[in-house]
C-alpha cells in the first residue's frame, strides 16, 4: 500500500490539513480565520497565530475523519516551513513535529511556493519536466521555473518588487468601499463593467520577469479621487474591470513570454488570485495562442490549504528524498533552494 502523507499548512490565515495517498487527495480540511481579519482590512499576524492554535487539532482530526483513517495510518507528515508569517508558521511546524514524533514517522519541511505548484498534480497528474509556474496571492507573486518538484529546487525567475497581486486587489477593494479580501468582490463587480480605463502595466516591457503593482494601485486611487474631486460619479464596475484587466494582462504576458523564451510548454497557475475569472480566461487564451498547455487547479486548491503540502510531501516520499530533522526551523523568509 502506498504511503499516507499528511500535510499541514499555517503560513497565513488558513489552518489546512490535507491527506494524500499515491497522488490521490483523501482529505482537505480547512479552518480559516479570514472573518477575524476582515475588520482590520488585512491579516493580523497575532490574530492568525491564535486562530491556528485553536484550529490545529480539530482540523487534524477532521482531515483524518474525512479520509476515514486513524492517526496510526499516517506514514509521513509534511509541513510548510516557510515563507509566511513567522508566528503562524511556528504553530504548524510545532504541530507537525509533535505529530510525526508521536507517531514515529518521518517529517518533511517544505516550501510554500513549491507546494502551490505540487497541488496541481492532484488534479492533472505528474508535471512535465520542466514546467513554468505563475503563483499569485495576497502574500506572493512569483514566476518560477520548475525542473523536478521531488528532486530539484524550484528556480525563481521573477517576483513582485513591491505589493503582491492579491494585496493590490485588497487595497483597490478598500478604495472602492468593497470588503476584505478584495479579490472576490472585484471579480464580481468587474463582470458588470468594461475595462475601458487605461491603467498602467507596471514593468510590462522592462525585459525582466518581475512584477510591480504599487504604481497600479496608486494610479487607480488617483483616478478615483480625481472623479470624486470633480463631483462626478465613480463608475466602480469599470474601475474594477480595468484594474483587474491590468493585473491579469501583465501577469499572463510575462508568464507566456517566460515559457516561450525558455522553451517550456506547460504553465501552472496557482495561489489565491488564480481564482480570478479574468486571469483564468486571459491565461487560457494566451496559452492557447502560444501552444502552451495551461494547468490551473480548481479554485479551492489554488488558495492556501493542507492538500498542497501533502501533495509535495507525497512526491518527496515517493522520490526517497531525505526527511527533515526534529529541530526544523520555521522560516518567514525561507529561500527556494532550501
Amino acid at each position: 500500500m502506498s504511503p499516507v502523507v499528511l500535510g499541514i499548512e499555517t503560513s497565513c490565515d488558513e489552518t489546512g490539513v490535507g491527506i494524500v495517498r499515491d497522488g490521490v487527495l483523501l482529505a482537505d480540511a480547512i479552518a480559516s480565520s479570514v472573518d477575524q481579519h476582515a475588520r482590520y482590512g488585512g491579516v493580523v499576524p497575532e490574530v492568525a497565530a491564535r486562530a491556528h492554535l485553536e484550529a490545529m487539532v480539530p482540523t487534524l482530526d477532521r482531515a483524518l475523519a474525512d479520509a476515514r483513517l486513524r492517526p496510526a495510518d499516517v506514514d509521513a507528515v509534511a509541513v510548510t516551513a516557510g515563507p509566511g508569517l513567522a508566528g503562524a508558521l511556528l504553530v504548524g511546524v510545532a504541530a507537525a513535529k509533535a505529530y510525526a514524533l508521536a507517531l514515529g514517522v518521518p517529517l518533511y519541511g517544505v516550501h510554500h511556493l513549491e507546494a502551490h505548484v505540487a497541488v496541481d498534480t492532484l488534479e492533472h497528474g505528474p508535471l512535465p519536466r520542466p514546467a513554468m509556474a505563475l503563483l499569485v496571492s495576497g502574500g506572493h507573486s512569483s514566476l518560477l521555473a520548475v525542473p523536478d518538484l521531488a528532486r530539484e529546487p524550484v528556480v525563481s525567475l521573477g517576483a513582485t518588487v513591491d505589493d503582491a497581486a492579491g494585496e493590490a486587489f485588497d487595497k483597490v477593494a478598500r478604495l472602492l468601499g468593497l470588503p476584505f479580501p478584495g479579490g472576490p468582490p472585484i471579480d464580481r463587480l468587474a463582470r458588470e463593467g468594461a475595462a475601458t480605463i487605461p491603467f498602467p502595466r507596471g514593468k510590462a516591457g522592462d525585459g525582466t520577469y518581475d512584477f510591480s503593482f504599487s504604481g497600479l494601485k496608486t494610479a487607480v486611487a488617483r483616478w478615483v479621487e480625481a472623479r470624486r474631486a470633480a463631483g462626478e460619479p465613480v463608475p466602480v464596475a469599470d474601475v474594477a474591470a480595468s484594474f483587474q484587466e491590468a493585473v491579469a494582462d501583465v501577469l499572463t504576458a510575462k508568464a507566456v513570454t517566460a515559457c516561450r523564451e525558455r522553451g517550456i510548454d506547460t504553465l501552472v497557475v496557482g495561489g489565491g488570485v488564480a481564482a480570478n475569472s479574468r486571469l483564468r480566461a486571459l491565461a487560457a487564451a494566451r496559452c492557447e495562442a502560444a501552444g502552451i498547455t495551461l494547468r490551473v487547479p480548481r479554485p479551492g486548491l489554488c488558495t492556501d490549504n493542507g492538500a498542497m503540502v501533502a501533495a509535495l510531501g507525497g512526491l518527496r516520499v515517493a522520490a526517497g528524498a531525505p526527511a527533515s530533522e526534529l529541530d526544523l526551523a520555521a522560516s518567514s523568509s525561507l529561500p527556494l533552494s532550501a
Binding site: 487539532v57 504553530v91 510545532a94 504541530a95 507537525a96 505529530y99 508521536a102
Partner: peptide, 10 residues
C-alpha cells in the same frame, strides 16, 4: 500545540 498534537496523535 506540541502537547495538543501529541495527545491527538496518540
Amino acid at each position: 500545540v506540541t502537547g495538543a498534537a501529541i495527545g491527538a496523535a496518540r
